[in-house]
Design a protein around this nucleic acid. Structure first.
Lengths: 228, 228
DNA sequence: CGACACTTTGATCCGATTCAACCATCGTGG
DNA sequence: CCACGATGGTTGAATCGGATCAAAGTGTCG
């Protein structure tokens, strides 16, 4: 086992405001792991042993219902924590986290959490803010699901995705990881068929551009206006 | 202004594990307020100045969309905190809180938060657990909205309500505050018409019993089985 | 190059909203 | 105290947004 370098995590939001010796101590307790695209980081209902920091790649957090339907709760990009609900008292993971592309993460055993939180209040505070921000974001999603028609929900999902992990290209802003029609449907409570029809229509109108598993938003403002 | 008695908050979840002198100090910073049924405790988008503890009554937390549609995010009952997202960094309230019945609450200025959290780690920890629990609950709701048909969503809402604030009666478990068809519709993303039809059908089948603004679940298990 | 995963598009069907009308209950003030 | 307006609830009919069913096209990778 080689020593992890503090440059890996310096500057990331969860560790902002910590000194270099602090970072070294925090890293001492971590192990790093590589996750191939399509592989799980952790699985729903499994005993929660660790929490994670995504260093590179993209992970989608998915809940599966008793009858097998899937809902994508969120996409996590590099620099963000996952599996932290468990650090705050849960015994099992509430969802499955699957790598959308080959990814790299750090893992800490749950026991390390209290220690870290106690010793580095800034780390704890950052984490709580993350949880609070996710709660608020999820609340917005409930409002969307409860009040908006499918086209609006899909548009909002795309706009959230490019905001959280968009990459500027020649034609607009592209979602920076592969995402299928089915994935978008699983984020918005609809079917791949409906998503396909919407994207085709929007492409004709010049709002978006897409190919297999890649989506680019050409004109976010007009897309937003279009769905009201 | 009279002194608030520590018996008001001793034993409530947010303050569990605190000593009596601690409680007195905490109460010193609070003011109490009476809210008449239908009146707001705080309003969406207003500058957040305080967080609250509901001592008696019931409050519903409502988000209103730009086009005026309402979504009831949750009902808060006595002993629970409200308006805490703001204590964790927000500048405005993300929703409106309206008293469902005449209610009584304590209010602390937001500045008191950091002080209390620093001095009473148990209070802080309890609060973070609350936020984490609400996130998980909201996640479940997203899954429900994204995957379940209306009858299931309404059934789940009723079961959640009787679990969180049910009162045992002769006929079953009654939701312990007045709630209209429209309110239930606003919790589940449907219309009062559909809720009315469902309740009527369920009443014929003996699962529930209801009158104006009062709903009793007669047989939770059979209702749950019925909607799959 | 073939198999598989992903995407498109048409036709049909259904759950739930919308539109419409009416009834019941509550609170209030003359 | 009762009349009346307001709020809440019921129920039918028409309509529609999307799901479902069905089938064929296309890009990708081993």
């Amino acid at each position: 086992m080689y020593m992890l370098d503090r440059s890996l995590i310096a500057g990331l939001p969860p560790f902002s405001g910590l000194t270099r010796p602090d970072l070294d101590l925090i890293l001492e307790k971590a192990r790093s792991l590589r996750i191939a695209a399509g592989q799980p980081v952790f699985e729903q209902d499994a005993e929660a042993h660790s929490f994670f920091l995504l260093l590179d790649g993209h992970v989608r957090v998915v809940k599966t219902t008793a009858d097998g339907q899937q809902v994508i709760m969120r996409y996590i990009s590099a620099g963000q924590l996952i599996g932290i609900a468990t650090a705050l008292g849960r015994l099992t993971y509430p969802a499955t986290a699957v790598a959308a592309v080959d990814s790299l993460a750090l893992a800490w055993p749950n026991e390390a959490w209290h220690e870290l939180a106690a010793r580095y209040p800034a780390f704890a505070a950052n984490t709580y803010k993350t949880v609070a921000a996710r709660l608020e974001e999820t609340n917005e999603r409930v409002v969307d699901l409860a009040t908006a028609l499918v086209d609006r929900r899909v548009a909002h999902a795309l706009l959230r995705l490019i905001e959280q992990s968009g990459r500027k290209t020649e034609f607009g802003i592209e979602i920076s990881f592969p995402i299928s029609r089915q994935d978008i449907a699983d984020m918005t409570g609809t079917t791949l068929h409906t998503v396909s029809r919407l994207l085709t229509a929007w492409e004709h109108q010049g709002f978006v551009k897409s190919t297999r598993k890649r989506v680019t938003v050409v004109d976010a403002q007009r897309l937003l206006d279009h769905v009201g």
